[in-house]
Write a protein that binds this DNA or RNA. Structure first.
Lengths: 150, 150
DNA sequence: CAATATAGTTCTATAATAGGACCAGTTGCG
DNA sequence: CGCAACTGGTCCTATTATAGAACTATATTG
């Protein structure tokens, strides 16, 4: 009755969810995108149990999504910083954000916003074809592992 | 000791994860994108326990991500079809896929691919500014709920 | 109309999470 | 310097969630 795992799946979606698809990892990564770096900051901001946070941070470090670096304030403590692999999760977090914005808020309800450096709200995520044309779900299909090109 | 919830959070990422951030929901949605619609198809493809699947499908219907429709083969059974809200999860699933492709496969390891109708692999997800310029994480910031525009 | 397929529900054992107690090293302050 | 508070954990227990199997009702096939 061990929790089902997908670390060996053919499907990259399954592997990604196996790695970071638990209840906390993406919220920790979101906080890291917002500039949080210290154990206590994550703990306070998320209201997560310290044992959970410890386990998740260690797993994220092991996955090379976060790395331990010396504290930026010169103290003897350490901080958790996003790696390139962690920063590559940006589109995933933005995707969740935009879906949440579009479907989970009543009109006028308060929420945070993602803006660019000038304060302008960002646009919607776009999936381009190789030639740059925007693709919708119905323009795509999944080619199974090992399937020959035609 | 009830599982922490984020249904009322200010942050759309937290709300989105509260709704569909469990171990199974996004895999079910991925399968739906791949064309699966029947209870038994999901169950066979995912290897999920039937009780879990039943609970997840009901929750996804309640969230209006899936809807029950008459079976397309004319039988008396029903099928689970993606709603517009469900189809809007496409960028999230693609984001997870692209992150998994980039970071969770050894060179040469078999995996499925997302291609367009001509069989060409799709491009990377892009976050455009209002003016169409592509934005990276470091070009953006989160404006907290209720913060005044400047 | 009997056998099998579909779509579940219910039950139990195991695994994961929440919350708190506890603890060692670091820092701030008088 | 000396002590209190802060930081960053570990460990333990109660509760919740998940996996897997057994069971059931309705639909379909032969």
């Amino acid at each position: 009755m061990k929790r089902t795992g997908f670390a060996k799946a053919d499907c990259p979606v399954a592997r990604a969810l196996d790695a970071i698809g638990d209840w906390w990892s993406l919220l920790i990564v979101r906080d890291a995108f917002d500039g949080l770096r210290r154990f206590g900051d994550f703990q306070k901001n998320l209201g997560i149990a310290k044992g959970m946070l410890s386990a998740r941070l260690h797993k994220l470090v092991e996955l090379d999504v976060l790395e331990l670096v010396p504290a930026s304030d010169g103290s003897a403590y350490q901080e958790y910083a996003l790696t390139e692999r962690g920063r590559d999760l940006f589109p995933v977090v933005v995707g969740l954000r935009q879906w949440g914005e579009a479907h989970l808020y009543a009109r006028g309800e308060a929420r945070s916003d993602l803006v660019d450096q000038t304060g302008q709200p960002v646009g919607q995520l776009v999936l381009p074809s190789r030639t740059g044309r925007p693709l919708a779900w119905s323009d795509t299909k999944v080619r199974k592992a090992g399937a020959r090109k035609r």
